[in-house]
Amino acid sequence: MDKRQKALNFLGLIKKAGKLVSGTETVLLGIKAQKVKLVVIASDCQANTLEKVERACRLNHLELVQTFTAAEIGHAIGQKRKVLGILDQGFSLALMKKIKEGV
């Protein structure tokens, strides 16, 4: 299994652990409430969605990951989603490590 797939599988694990919110509006609310530690957005999402999420991340000093396509994200978490927010610092750091190893 390649490292990219391991990072995607890890997204599924984060979801199972209940430390993931998904969907643009839900993630934006999570960012405003300062619950989201890391944002994952599909590399093929719409420009206006990206702009909204990027702005929220900038204002809240959050890292934004654009490594995966919507199809990859959907497959990893078992739902059609383009924007994910990770609520746990430990999971966020571990995911970033996996992404950096695999890209």
Results as ranks from 00 to 15, higher is better:
residue 63 E to V: 08
residue 77 I to D: 00
residue 20 L to T: 01
residue 101 E to M: 09
residue 82 K to L: 11
residue 26 T to N: 12
residue 81 R to V: 10
residue 48 N to R: 14
residue 74 G to E: 04
residue 65 V to I: 15
residue 10 F to M: 07
residue 24 T to P: 02
residue 12 G to L: 04
residue 92 S to Y: 05
residue 67 T to L: 08
residue 75 H to D: 12
residue 24 T to K: 10
residue 18 G to H: 04
residue 7 A to L: 02
residue 58 R to Q: 15
residue 69 T to K: 08
residue 48 N to Y: 14
residue 25 E to S: 13
residue 73 I to S: 00
residue 88 D to V: 05
residue 98 K to N: 11
residue 22 S to R: 11
residue 50 L to A: 10
residue 79 Q to I: 14
residue 2 D to W: 07
residue 93 L to W: 13
residue 28 L to C: 05
residue 52 K to R: 15
residue 5 Q to L: 12
residue 29 L to H: 10
residue 80 K to C: 10
residue 103 V to S: 11
residue 62 L to H: 09
residue 56 A to G: 09
residue 35 K to G: 09
residue 33 A to I: 06
residue 21 V to C: 07
residue 90 G to T: 14
residue 11 L to N: 00
residue 85 G to F: 04
residue 47 A to T: 12
residue 13 L to Y: 09
residue 4 R to D: 07
residue 89 Q to I: 12
residue 20 L to K: 02
residue 25 E to C: 10
residue 88 D to E: 11
residue 65 V to T: 08
residue 26 T to L: 08
residue 35 K to L: 12
residue 15 K to A: 11
residue 31 I to W: 01
residue 70 A to R: 12
residue 18 G to D: 05
residue 75 H to S: 15
residue 42 A to L: 05
residue 12 G to C: 04
residue 8 L to G: 00
residue 43 S to W: 06
residue 74 G to T: 05
residue 31 I to F: 06
residue 58 R to V: 13
residue 16 K to F: 04
residue 85 G to T: 08
residue 3 K to S: 12
residue 89 Q to Y: 11
residue 85 G to Y: 04
residue 5 Q to D: 11
residue 50 L to K: 12
residue 31 I to G: 00
residue 81 R to I: 06
residue 94 A to M: 14
residue 4 R to L: 10
residue 96 M to E: 12
residue 87 L to V: 07
residue 35 K to C: 08
residue 22 S to V: 10
residue 102 G to Q: 08
residue 57 C to H: 05
residue 7 A to I: 02
residue 96 M to Y: 05
residue 27 V to M: 04
residue 74 G to M: 06
residue 43 S to A: 15
residue 44 D to K: 06
residue 82 K to G: 15
residue 14 I to P: 00
residue 77 I to A: 00
residue 57 C to Y: 05
residue 13 L to M: 12
residue 46 Q to M: 12
residue 56 A to N: 07
residue 99 I to Y: 00
residue 52 K to N: 15
residue 89 Q to D: 12
residue 83 V to Q: 00
residue 16 K to M: 10
residue 83 V to K: 03
residue 86 I to A: 03
residue 94 A to D: 13
residue 15 K to C: 07
residue 17 A to P: 04
residue 57 C to N: 07
residue 73 I to M: 05
residue 11 L to Q: 00
residue 64 L to A: 05
residue 80 K to F: 12
residue 54 E to G: 09
residue 59 L to C: 10
